[in-house]
Design a protein around this nucleic acid. Structure first.
Lengths: 124, 124
DNA sequence: CAGCATCCCGGGAGATACTG
DNA sequence: CAGTATCTCCCGGGATGCTG
């Protein structure tokens, strides 16, 4: 397939990356890929996320119909998050990217460091 | 495949999204997927990108070894950009995501609008 | 336990103008 | 044609503290 071929394709991809390209969204999707998870459990699962950002990320995903929020009116309150059908369907393409990431990240980070060195050597 | 399974996978994916999740990178990769393209041609291909941001994006991709920069010492100068082997390998997983985007974007944007409406209705 | 409101900072990104 | 430099604005996102 050819990304350049169809401009509409790039646009669609752009929109999706605007959506999932933020700092936490994919982590949340990953954490929910097993099944429903409660709010605080998510916080523990996703290393480094703040209370606030987890809330915002979940709200966004919920609004876009990728995540379903279920409230159990108990005391204390219990809220579960789970992927919707659409949300689950995202796992597969994301997995392809993850595989690529695992394969190529070492080369990329090596290149980055090498070129940084070249750069600073030039500036001397 | 299961994203949650392996924490390292999520990390790798996170790094990659930090890299390609910005506003212009995927557009550039898409525009270069056909073959070498000159700087100004890229600007015309990628709608809305500024001179500056295109430069920065290309520098980033070059530094990470995803793009190769070739200068022809002519007058006026001619500079071509092309994907490296690693860069080209990114097209495939990106295509999977693009396909997903085309398929699911309508549903997502519909859900977004619906939920916006619900939201504002609740605030009345 | 879950979630919202407020404050605040750094960096992403546009506009513009200058150079080889 | 290709690239750099500066100035500026805006908002993503962290910290913190309050409610039901």
């Amino acid at each position: 397939m050819d990304l350049h071929d169809d401009h509409a394709r790039c646009k669609a991809l752009g929109r999706v990356l605007d959506r999932i390209g933020d700092k936490w969204t994919v982590m949340v999707v990953g954490a929910l890929s097993k099944g429903p998870v409660r709010f605080n459990a998510l916080m523990r699962l996703i290393d480094g996320v703040s209370h606030r950002m987890l809330t915002l990320t979940l709200r966004g995903l919920e609004q876009d119909g990728l995540v379903k929020r279920t409230v159990y009116p108990t005391v204390p309150p219990k809220v579960e998050y789970q992927l919707t059908e659409v949300g689950r369907s995202l796992i597969e393409p994301l997995s392809a990217l993850t595989l690529w990431a695992q394969t190529n990240l070492p080369a990329i980070e090596a290149a980055r460091i090498t070129n940084e060195d070249v750069e600073s050597a030039e500036t001397i």
